[in-house]
């Protein structure tokens, strides 16, 4: 298993946000976590990146425990994250944002190659190279957030509701982008509420409801299930 969460519980303040979540992902796959707002999806991702501590349980990446490790060590291990509000550096230009994605890397040649790889995926970013990130359109900002995450050369790319606020036509190309990233050998953990996007990219799916996994399985079986529908519609 590339990523495996066992009985992970997380408190947010005094409230239990996530209760005994168990989840696993094989290398090379796209796995999706779906659920309504407040179900604990973002909190789970924050715990994997080490931004939020877990109360109990364990998180393993590539067979090694990563819970309790600092975020920089987790990024170095090969996990990159596209956070929900993108968290770009708004007053820096596109190129500087991308280069900061490679902050922990020292292989100059590899960084150049991956930069080209990002431009193949998102030619628009190459046109906007010197533009400030904050002045990009919503779709372009999403491209930049994904591109920046790819610059760390991750084995696992986690995305938190990347479709949020995007027009349907932009979501179409987002689905293609995710499939292309996956074809390049990067595993993707996708947190979403958009059923259309999930059904086009994911192979497996977990349903999170008020902090608990209530259902898991193959994507095709899931899409006809009642609680899945409930999760999507909130």
């Amino acid at each position: 298993m590339l990523l495996s969460l066992k009985d992970v519980s997380i408190y947010y303040g005094s409230a239990m946000a996530v209760t005994e979540v168990t989840l696993s992902q094989e290398e090379g796959t796209v796995v999706s976590v779906i659920g309504a707002n407040g179900a604990g999806k973002s909190t789970t991702l924050k715990a994997i990146t080490g931004l939020v501590p877990i109360q109990s349980g364990s998180i393993e990446f590539d067979g090694r425990r990563i819970d309790g490790a600092p975020t920089d060590a987790i990024v170095k291990a090969g996990i990159a994250c596209v956070p929900e509000s993108r968290k770009l550096f708004p007053h820096m230009n596109v190129l500087s944002n991308l280069k900061l994605g490679a902050y922990l890397r020292r292989d100059k040649q590899g960084i150049e190659e991956d930069l080209e790889g990002v431009f193949v995926l998102f030619p628009r970013l190459k046109e906007r190279l010197r533009q400030k990130a904050g002045s990009l359109s919503g779709g372009e900002q999403q491209m930049l957030a994904i591109g920046r995450a790819l610059m760390s050369k991750p084995r696992l790319l986690m995305m938190d509701e990347p479709s949020l606020g995007l027009a349907p036509i932009v979501i179409d190309s987002l689905a293609e982008n995710i499939n292309e990233i996956n074809r390049r050998g990067v595993s993707v953990l996708l947190v979403e509420q958009n059923a259309g996007l999930v059904s086009r990219v994911a192979q497996r799916c977990y349903v999170l409801e008020v902090g608990r996994i209530v259902l898991e399985g193959n994507i095709n079986e899931m899409m006809s299930n009642d609680s899945v529908r409930r999760a999507f519609l909130g």
């Binding site: 990146t49 931004l51 975020t71 920089d72 990024v75 170095k76 990159a80 994250c81 956070p83 993108r86 968290k87 770009l88 550096f89 708004p90 007053h91 820096m92 900061l100 994605g101 902050y103 922990l104 920046r148 995450a149 760390s152």
Partner: peptide
């Protein structure tokens, strides 16, 4: 410019 965004880059 973005503390959490910076942490996520390592």
């Amino acid at each position: 410019q973005d503390r959490e965004g910076a942490a996520l880059q390592g």
